[in-house]
Amino acid sequence: MIEFILLITAVAIFLYAFLAGADFGAGILQILPIGIDRKEKTTLIGRAMGPVWESNHIWLILVIVITFNAFSTIFWFFSEWYHFPAGAFVIGIIFRGASFTFLHYDPIIDNSQKVYHWFFGLSSIWCTFWIGIIVGSLMLGDFTLNDTGVFERYFGHWLNPFSLSMGLFVTLLMMFNASLFLLMEAEKNIPEWRRLTVRIFIFLILSGILTHGILFLTNFERWKFFYFNPISIVLILMSFILLFPQITSIKKRQKAISRVIAGAQLICIGAAGAVPLYPNFVLMKDGTTLSMISSAAEPEVLKYLCFALIIGLPLILPGYFILMKIFKSK
């Protein structure tokens, strides 16, 4: 049962990172001066992301619900130690949601659209940056469950160079994901979109080097198990090798193949970080761990959660695909 729940959680996290990640990235690209007419950019982004916006973000709600139901200790830990980063992320979600509503449902098109765009773009940067900080801090595990001091418990573990550099890395990763998505969707200005994708990729690589450099210099001892884990190494190599078929699919404009490869690359990167830790969720600085298995709820609770997921998925997934199909037939 627990494996099934963990699998669904992992799938939901992946879909959120992939679909909502592209959506976040598109929001950022919308306000960047990338040499493409704003109106054209907006139309393309609206066409690619618009209709599935609400359902994209429901993956996040699914992850939250599963976590507090099946792994309530981890939910409690996250709520307390990440009180401020999670709160900041939610504020971004509010502004993003409000500007999205304006952008899509304001019946009057006038100059106010420019304001909505800026709100949407800035809140997208804000959200992705905080997601990156949280991911970085969880990877670093610079805390213990016995932290009682205000700074240690609420600030110290994320207010550090590594977590901040992860904020930058995740922001660029989502921008790259979005630019790839939009490059394959674009019908005009394809060379410009291609140039943009390459530029973001270069920045992404540089930011990756920076992130690893900081980790190497500050926390190598604690993280060397990650660098020497054979599965992680294979997964990272695979994500790199997949770049070649990705480039080919972009050249041939094979939209579906390109997206599948992008998804596979994201899975490889995510799994490379998660595999050395599994079944633990985080490795803390005192050497103790927070484990998914040991923090799981009673079997009766897991049984009913599985039941809810088994009922829900056959209802949700076909509907989701119908929605995608209807929208793409536009």
Partner: peptide
């Protein structure tokens, strides 16, 4: 969380369906 997770999970499913049907 573990005690009232079931209705919350079902609510999440219903909400998801609502979003998809609205789309």
């Amino acid at each position: 969380g573990p005690i009232i997770g079931l209705p919350f999970s079902l609510e999440g499913t219903a909400f998801f369906l609502e979003a998809i049907a609205l789309g």
